[in-house]
Design a protein around this nucleic acid. Sequence first.
DNA 1: GTCTATATTTAGATAGAC
DNA 2: GTCTATCTAAATATAGAC
Lengths: 215, 215
Amino acid sequence: MDGTVPKESPPAAQGRILDAAENIFAEQGFAGAGMKAIALRANVAQGLLHYHFSNKDGLYAAVIERRSGIINRDRISLLDQVNLEKQDPVPDIMEALLKPPLGPAGGGRAYARILAGLCVGDARDSALVEEHYDPTAKRFIAALQIARPHASARSISWGYNLAVGALIATVARDGRSDRLIGAVEKIEDLEKTVARTVAYAAGGLDAIIAADAPP
Amino acid sequence: MDGTVPKESPPAAQGRILDAAENIFAEQGFAGAGMKAIALRANVAQGLLHYHFSNKDGLYAAVIERRSGIINRDRISLLDQVNLEKQDPVPDIMEALLKPPLGPAGGGRAYARILAGLCVGDARDSALVEEHYDPTAKRFIAALQIARPHASARSISWGYNLAVGALIATVARDGRSDRLIGAVEKIEDLEKTVARTVAYAAGGLDAIIAADAPP
DNA sequence: GTCTATATTTAGATAGAC
DNA sequence: GTCTATCTAAATATAGAC
C-alpha cells in the first residue's frame, strides 16, 4: 500500500460515457445527439467528455472503435472455425458474419442502429466503415469466394453487402413486420432471428449468382 | 393583359425548396440538415421556408409526402399489372416494389438515402413510414401471400421487410462493393442493379420460407 | 480526473418592409 | 410571396477551480 486510492474500477466515467454515447447516438444519430444529453445520461459533467475525447467526432469514433473491435474479433473467431471444405459452408459463413452484431456482445439494439446509420451515412461514416470494417469484410468476401468458386467477384461482394443490408433491416425494422400483419405476440428469441437472417442472406447470395451466370 | 405578371411557373420557389431539401436531408439526415443551407441551395430567403412549410418538421414531411406519393403510385401501378396466376409471380412483385424507388422518378439516390434513413430512424420517422408507406406495404404483403399460400404470415412480412433492406443496401452502400474488390470500372446501369436486387429478394424470401417450414 | 461556469457559434423561428 | 433583419434558444467547446 502506498496510500494512493483508485477512485473507480473499470466502468469508470470513461466507460459510462461510452455507454451513454452509444445509446444516444443510436437513438438520435450523430447530428441529433447532444453532448449535454450524453453527459446527463452518463452522470458526468459535460466538460469531461471533451477532456477524454476532445470533441464530438472523437467521441463518436471512440464508440465505433470500441464496439467494432469486439464484433470483428467475434466474427473472425467464428469464421476461423468454419470448415470451408464441407458441403456448403455459406450458411456458416453468414452466421459468423451476422450473429456477433445481433448478440449481446454486439452492443444490442443500440449499437446495431449505429451500425445501420454508418452504412447509410455520409463521408465521416464512410471513413469509419473503411477503417474499422473493411479489413474484416475482405476476409468474409474471400471465404465466400472459396465457397462459391465459379461466382464473379462482383456477385460475391454484392452478396456480402446485401447480407449487411439484411442485418440492418433485421435490427432497424424490428417491430414493423409484426405491425404489418397485426401480430401482438412476444418478441422472437435471438436464435430464430439469426437463423432467418442467415437463411435469407445465403439464399439471396445464390440467387444473384444464378442470375449473373451466363445464359 | 391586366398588368399582373406571374413571377415563376411550376418549378417556383416552393418546388425548388423541396428539391433542395430533398438533397440536403439525404446528405445530412434530418438533424444534420440546416434550414439555412436548404434556403441557400434553393436560392430563396430562409424565411420563405417557414412561410410555406411552417417549420423543419413540416418541410421534412412535405419532402416525404411528395416523393412517397409518386413512388406508391408507380408501385401500385406495376403491382396491378402482375399476373398472380402465372407460374412464379414473386420476381414480378419484387420488381414492382423495388424498381420505382431506384428509377429516376423515385428521386434518384438522394431520396433513396432519405428512405434508408426513414427505415433506421427514430419515432418521427416511424410515424412517417406508417402514414406514407404502410398502406402500400400491406398490398404487397397480400400479393406475396397469394403467391406463396403455404408460407406463414410472419415469413411473408419478413420477406417484405428484408426486401426493403436489400433496397437500402443497394442504394446506400453503392460504391462499397466495388471498393472491396478493387474494381475501377464504370457505374452499373439501372437494369442490372434492379435485376440483381430483385433476384436477391426473391431468392431470400423462398429461403426463409423453407427454413421456417416444419421439419 | 472531475466539476462549475462561461464563451462562442449556430440553429430554428419570427417581424415587418416591399 | 418573397426578402432583410433580428430574436431566442441550443449547441459545442473552453477556462479555471478543486
